[in-house]
C-alpha cells in the first residue's frame, strides 16, 4: 500500500484541483443545519435498507409469521369477540393486533440501532463533528417513522391478501394508520433511552424477553374481557390495548370491548397514551444523551 499513500492532497489527475473544504460553521443557520443533518443521518439508515433490502423482511418476519400462524393455524379454534362470524371474524380481529404489535416491537429496532452506534464509537464520532448533536437522535427517529410506514404497507397488503378488510370510511382508515404511527413515534424515545442505557447490543437483544410478555398482556391477540378479572384490567390499561381497540373501531373490525371506561374511550386514550409516553421518555432520552459528556 505504501506506493499509494500520498502525503499531500494531490489532485487525482492533472486537471483536477483539490476539493474546496471551506464549510458553513453552522453557527448562523442552526435550525437549517439541524434539519439537514437529521436528513443526512436518516439517509444513512435508509441506505442500509437500500444496500440490504432483505433487512426489512427480516424485521417483518415475526409479525408476518404470526399473521399466518394465528390467522390460519389457530383461527379455527379462536373465537372473535362476540362469538359470531367464526374464523374469518377472528382474522379481522387479529390483523389490527398484528399492526399494533409491529409498531410496539419497533422500538427494539431503535434501541438496537442506538446501542450499536453508542458502543461502536459512531455517536462519539458524530459528537466530535461540527454537526447538530440532536441530529443523531432526530435522524434515527425520522428513519423509524419511514420504516414503520413501509412495514405497515407490507403488513396491510399481506392482511388484504388473507381476506382482511377495513370497513370504515377512507378517513377512518387513514386515522387508524395514523394512530399506529403515533404509537411508534412515542416508542422512539423509549428506544433511544434504552439504547443509551444498556451496555451492549447483546443486552439489547435480551430486552425482547421483557417486551414480549408486555405486548401479550394486551388486546393484541385476544379481547381483554376473556382474561381473568385483574389481568383483564391490567391488559385493558396497557397503552397498546387502547391503540388496538381504537384502530379496530376505525377499521370497523370486531372490537370486543367490555364496556369499561378505558375501552369506551379507546380513541381518546390512543392519542393520550403516546403523548404521555413521549412526555416521560423524551426528556429521559435527552438527559441520557447529555450524560454522555460526563
Amino acid at each position: 500500500m505504501s506506493a499509494h499513500l500520498t502525503a499531500e492532497r494531490r489532485p487525482l489527475t492533472a486537471e483536477r484541483t483539490p476539493v474546496d473544504l471551506s464549510v458553513d460553521s453552522g453557527d448562523e443557520r442552526r435550525l437549517y443545519w439541524a434539519l439537514a443533518d437529521s436528513l443526512n443521518v436518516a439517509r444513512r439508515f435508509l441506505t442500509h435498507y437500500r444496500n440490504k433490502p432483505s433487512y426489512i423482511l427480516w424485521q417483518l418476519g415475526f409479525p408476518i409469521i404470526s399473521v399466518l400462524l394465528y390467522g390460519y393455524v389457530f383461527s379455527g379454534a379462536m373465537k372473535a369477540p362476540g362469538g359470531e362470524g367464526g374464523s374469518d371474524a377472528y382474522r379481522d380481529f387479529l390483523m389490527a393486533g398484528m399492526f399494533v404489535m409491529t409498531m410496539a416491537f419497533g422500538f427494539m429496532n431503535t434501541a438496537t440501532g442506538v446501542v450499536y452506534d453508542a458502543t461502536k464509537g459512531v455517536i462519539d464520532r458524530f459528537r466530535s463533528m461540527p454537526m447538530a448533536p440532536s441530529a443523531v437522535v432526530t435522524g434515527r427517529g425520522l428513519t423509524d417513522i419511514i420504516v414503520a410506514c413501509a412495514e405497515l404497507t407490507i403488513l396491510a397488503l399481506t392482511a388484504l391478501a388473507m381476506g382482511w378488510r377495513a370497513h370504515g370510511s377512507f378517513g377512518e382508515t387513514v386515522a387508524g394508520f395514523a394512530l399506529l404511527v403515533l404509537l411508534r413515534f412515542s416508542l422512539i424515545w423509549v428506544g433511544v433511552w434504552l439504547g443509551l442505557l444498556v451496555p451492549s447490543p447483546e443486552a439489547a437483544g435480551g430486552l425482547y424477553a421483557v417486551v414480549f410478555p408486555l405486548t401479550m398482556v394486551s388486546s393484541i391477540f385476544v379481547p381483554t374481557s376473556s382474561m381473568p378479572g385483574w389481568l383483564g384490567t391490567v391488559a385493558a390499561w396497557n397503552p397498546i390495548s387502547s391503540t388496538g381497540t381504537a384502530v379496530r373501531e376505525l377499521f370497523g373490525n370486531p372490537v370486543g370491548a367490555d364496556g369499561s371506561w378505558i375501552e369506551q374511550n379507546a380513541l381518546l386514550m390512543a392519542v393520550v397514551w403516546p403523548l404521555v409516553v413521549t412526555a416521560v421518555f423524551l426528556p429521559l432520552a435527552v438527559r441520557r444523551f447529555q450524560k454522555l459528556s460526563r
Partner: peptide
C-alpha cells in the same frame, strides 16, 4: 455520509 455531515 460523513462529508455531508461535515456540511460539504
Amino acid at each position: 455520509l460523513f462529508g455531508r455531515l461535515f456540511h460539504l
